[in-house]
Design a protein around this nucleic acid. Structure first.
Lengths: 154, 154
DNA sequence: CTTATTAACGAAATTCAATTTCATTTTGGT
DNA sequence: ACCAAAATGAAATTGAATTTCGTTAATAAG
């Protein structure tokens, strides 16, 4: 499950977490290895599952008027199958960008990205208000995503 | 600020948001354009700021025992300069991976990634408990990140 | 302490893809 | 219908990724 990283691996990951489009040659130079050695490291990180994916991040504001919505969800009962069913639903919902199972008064925290309040209204109807296992939910609305970093601090 | 996307651009973005390591040739084939034409599109999306970055996503569980922490923060007063100062602090804090200014009872929602509760304890001391403009905060702890997608649904 | 074994390395060669060039086609506006 | 601007694709070029293989370093065993 876990994976031993040495200083060089950490170095590579810190760079790739900021910019995965860097050429292997440049990366090799920055970490002080030859291109082949560097490539082998990166491949190993990919194959071992440390690097899950390499993706393009786009600015939501450039492609529409998106709203971030945070939803705190409380289920009626703390049962595994109820939790699992809910997770599966959230996984299938395209509006849901993040889903966390949390401890405490609340059971789940959802992060949504929607075009407008109408879309959110539709979402609640389809996924929340009609779920018999859901006790209550609270909505927080954000027009500003002030920070968004995908990097894991190493 | 905004940017007109046609069907082809959207198509490109949907692919790159899932896998930015795809070769330009394969991408070109999938969207039905020649490699040069495809490359120009992608370059334009990058230069215009639609594509903010291309990054490697790593699995936190593979490199340590990370905990997700969600913090809801309420400031003492709804003043612009107080908000801005807080944002700047969060931007500088490496533990904070996301920061949203929200409307309603709460003022900010933070997403943190920390090694253990001790690290979180240290964070609250350094950034929260000592902030005179901060009225109160509530902590939600998550050991499970059930869904995490960086893709903007287009 | 020496010697096998394994893993990681780098130089050079090869393969493959990105990128440029340029003539042609398409698109949008008048 | 015509012009101007933008987008396209074929072919050539450039440049980087990847393979090969002999060498070096690290680790374990005798």
């Amino acid at each position: 499950m876990s994976f031993d990283l040495d200083r060089i691996d950490r170095n590579i990951l810190n760079i790739l977490q900021k910019d995965s489009r860097i050429s292997n040659q440049d990366l090799a130079e920055r970490i002080g290895l030859s291109p082949p050695a560097c490539l082998r490291r990166v491949r190993r990180l990919r194959e071992s599952g440390v690097i899950v994916a390499e993706v393009a991040l786009i600015n939501p504001r450039m492609v529409g008027r998106y709203i971030n919505i945070i939803v705190e969800v409380e289920m009626v009962r703390d049962q595994l199958d109820i939790y699992d069913a809910f997770k599966r639903k959230m996984d299938a919902a395209p509006e849901v960008t993040q889903c966390y199972q949390v401890t405490g008064e609340v059971d789940f925290l959802l992060m949504l990205l929607v075009e407008d309040m109408e879309s959110y209204e539709a979402f609640t109807r389809k996924y929340l208000s009609t779920d018999a296992n859901l006790a209550k939910f609270r909505t927080l609305i954000s027009l500003r995503r002030d920070k968004f970093s995908t990097a894991v601090p190493l």
